[in-house]
Write a protein that binds this DNA or RNA. Structure first.
Lengths: 221, 221
DNA sequence: CTGCTTTGGTGACATGGTCACTGAAGACGC
DNA sequence: GCGTCTTCAGTGACCATGTCACCAAAGCAG
């Protein structure tokens, strides 16, 4: 298998050749289909995964069927933390799902440990990944605890809206924000009443991004 | 300064002598008074702290004055993550406060890096600490997003109730759970109406721990 | 076209958060 | 002791959010 992927990893491209060699020879590139559950309750993978291509969504499930997206792992980021985390403590109700078809490099734990011990750059890379996750989680907590739903929804629409169109069902948006579908439906109805959006089944067309950004508090930026 | 503290650190007592030596000689034991803000917006300490004695509360503040406790760092645990985290990314609205008088070992980042690279046991210790924090945050998110307030308050009363008495104001309980004082007052009034507790200024006496545990869902345990 | 599944809409109600204000309990100075 | 001040707790009105039950419309499969 080619070791090209090492060079696409942000933060890893300047590693010493010796480290790159270890990464390239002792990892295995694997592919998974969109929708695959990569880890979940009672199911942590043996190896650590570095995501080379695609996106992984990490979400928390509740008994009553509600769910919330905790964060996403993008290509070029490491999945390390999630797996290390679930390994260290008992299995948990969070799960990671391939949001697209994905490609990943699987690295045995022992190799990961070697790399941590031998490369300062690798350590920086891994600790940055952890830090990023934790600040992501801080943001999520701040949002659910203190922010109004209309504002959170406006922010989400802007974040998802590529080319002014959001392709998502109300249920999916509810899961993103950890709320109920009806709440999303009502908020979107209100947005539509103000002519900020136009809804059709499964898609939301953003008509007035300015007003939405103003509500989201993103106006200054 | 004595290096006794190394032996009190869970997970560190079996480190190679060489590593213990580094910890003992290259760290500095410091003390802080109860209430000291250890880190906060725009204020990350230079060194990493290992908490030797006392408790540190890490909380998130909102603009409107509301707050929520994210987790606590106990003696014998590492503060590493919080500081590493705040270093890696821009300053954030979370802060760490000494909940008691505390004693800590301050370790320069370079020494920390040396230790990580040289000791497998130290790596395990640090990664376990990170993992613990992340699972703590998962729990907080699950709670705020999905759990009813009466249940959360019941759990908190049981967790805080030493000898059947909780010494806390309604405002403090509200901050623990990330809600408003009025909400706590109403819930406690209801608990009192059911003769589960008896309230007086600043303290709550638990009269019927069984009923509270039943509400909290802790009964089976 | 017909029936099925998914998606979205709605009203009624329960819970939680905000605001404005009140009163009670302890702290402090005298 | 007595007044004053500050902190803490109680309350009603109102708005925001979550839950439940149910219906209607849009797409899909046969």
């Amino acid at each position: 298998m080619s070791d090209d992927w090492i060079f696409r990893f942000q933060g890893l491209s300047r590693l010493p050749d010796r480290i790159k060699g270890i990464l390239a020879t002792r990892s295995q590139v694997i592919r998974m289909r969109k929708g695959t559950v990569i880890f979940g309750p009672g199911n942590s993978p043996e190896n650590l995964l570095f995501l080379l291509d695609g996106t992984v969504r990490v979400q928390q499930l509740a008994e009553n069927g509600r769910e919330i997206v905790l964060y996403r792992v993008q290509a070029g980021e490491s999945c390390v933390m999630t797996t290390a985390c679930l390994l260290a403590y008992e299995d948990y109700s969070a799960e990671g799902v391939a949001e697209t078809d994905i490609t990943a490099a699987a690295i045995p734990r022992t190799v990961f440990d070697d790399l941590i011990s031998q490369s300062k750059e690798f350590r920086t890379f891994v600790f940055s990944a952890y830090s990023r996750r934790i600040t992501d989680l801080f943001h999520v907590i701040e949002d659910i605890a203190f922010q109004r739903m209309d504002i959170r929804l406006a922010q989400k629409l802007l974040a998802l809206g590529q080319g002014g169109v959001v392709k998502a069902t109300h249920q999916q948006l509810a899961a993103e924000l950890g709320t109920a579908r009806e709440v999303i439906s009502r908020q979107l109805s209100e947005f539509q009443r103000r002519d900020w959006i136009k809804q059709s089944r499964g898609t939301i067309e953003v008509l007035d991004a300015g007003s939405i950004a103003r509500l989201a508090g993103t106006e200054a930026a």
